[in-house]
Each structure stands twice: as structure tokens, then as C-alpha cells.
Amino acid sequence: MKRWAFVSDFDGTISKKDFYWIVIEKYFQEGHSLFKQWKEGDIKDIDFLATVFKSINQNEDQIIADILQIPIDEYVPSFIRNVQKNGGDFFILSAGTDYYIQYVLNKYAVENVPVFSNQGFFHKNNIHMNIDDQHVHFSERYGIDKTKIIKQLKEEYEFVCFIGDSEPDSHPAVFSDMTFAIGTLQDLLKEKGITFIPVNNFKEVEKHLINMEIMT
């Protein structure tokens, strides 16, 4: 087995703002009411995102420009490289879409980071998602089942760390060897009685890993 892996959510964890909010605020004001319906459980996560991403109505150059403005935790690129230098593999696990994640990784020249996410593509001035209900990682609610990914990685790695910030991350957190929680995820895990380490950013994560002698 490989030594260790660090798995991170993207929106609200690596990024400081969910991409869907960027879209809603710039191009889709109706998304505010749709957001409330989603949070009240009236629509599935994947249906909410699909609707938002198909409501941009901009050419691809503009969409890419918007993607490149996604604010991230500035320390993340250094953290990823430090994980890799210390014998770990870094993964991104997102219930969003790989379409915008890949552009962000390229912007910061981050290499060798596999992305588990819903497949996205540009078509007719919008972002569409290709959801395969026959895929081994399929989730009816999220498009991709984060728990299945963590379980798979645990079969390949001796130690799996995970970090997230919101409800979809509460499910894989149950199965990781160590979970770091940002924001809302902290309260969710407290309610479930799941052990976690509260953090605000990736510098704090790195300090914990150094203290545990997982990183130097």
C-alpha cells in the first residue's frame, strides 16, 4: 500500500467562495430563490448546480475569466507541494464539476493532483455536467459519491486525511482516518459525534500534520 493521501473538497475549502455563488451574483439572480429551495431540501444538490451552471449564458472566454477570479486559500499551492514532498498524494474531491477546478489548478501551476468530481463541459454558452448513473461513483443526490471515493482510497493508502466545509463532506468524514473541518462542517460533525480537527485554513492543517510528524 502507498503511505498516505490528503483529500480535499474544493468549493468553500480550497476556494474561499463557491463557484455557484459567483454565477448567481453575476448572471442568475433567480438563483437566490433556487438556493433557498435547495437548502430546504426541495431539490437535489446536483439539480441545483446543473440549473445554476446552465444559466450563465456567456461565451467561454468570459466563463474562464470568471473561473480564474475564484478566490482561494493562498497557501493551498504550497501545501499541495509540501504534501507531495513528504511522500503523500493530494486529491481533490468535489461535488461541483472538474470544468472549473482544472482551470484553477492550471492557474497556480499545481501538478499531479487527480480530481474526483462531476464531469463538466462548455456547450452553448453554459457549463453542462455529464452525470453517468452507471458510474461506480454515482450518487443520485450529489452526482458523485464522496464516501465511495474515500473508501476506495483507504484500500490503496495506509492513512487518508480529508478536509471539507459543508454537508456533502459530512459523509466521507465518517470514513477518513483524520478529518479537518472548516466552517459549517464543524457543527455537522459535532452533531453526528464524529471526531475532527477544527481549522480555518491550510496553514493550520499543515501545522497539525507537522506536529504529528506526518509532514516536516
Rank of each mutant, 00 (worst) to 15 (best):
F10E: 03
S78N: 09
D165Q: 13
S176H: 13
F121C: 08
I163H: 01
K207M: 14
Q119V: 07
I63L: 02
K148Y: 13
Q186F: 11
K207H: 14
R141D: 15
K124I: 01
I56C: 15
I63E: 15
Q102S: 11
K17H: 10
L93E: 00
H135T: 02
K146Y: 10
K203A: 13
T216D: 12
Q102R: 12
L189P: 03
D169P: 11
K146W: 03
L185V: 03
K85C: 12
M178A: 11
K203T: 13
I182M: 08
Y108W: 11
G41M: 14
H137C: 08
G120K: 00
G164H: 06
H32E: 13
K146R: 06
P168C: 04
L185D: 03
E204W: 06
F121G: 08
K54F: 15
V76P: 04
G164F: 06
E40W: 07
G183P: 11
N57L: 08
N130C: 02
Y100N: 13
V110R: 00
G88E: 09
H128F: 08
G88Y: 04
Q84R: 00
K203R: 09
E158Y: 01
D145F: 03
V110T: 07
K44I: 14
G88T: 01
V104R: 09
G31F: 15
D177L: 02
L93K: 07
L68Q: 07
K36Q: 07
E191I: 06
H208L: 01
V83R: 02
D18Q: 10
H135P: 11
H208M: 09
I144Y: 04
D89T: 00
S33M: 13
I163Y: 01
I197P: 09
N59R: 08
F159M: 00
I72H: 01
N125F: 15
M215N: 03
G183K: 10
N130R: 02
S15V: 12
I150M: 05
R141Q: 11
A95H: 07
Y142D: 12
W38Q: 00
Q186I: 09
K107E: 12
H171D: 12
V174R: 12
Q152F: 15
G183N: 08
L93A: 01
G120F: 01
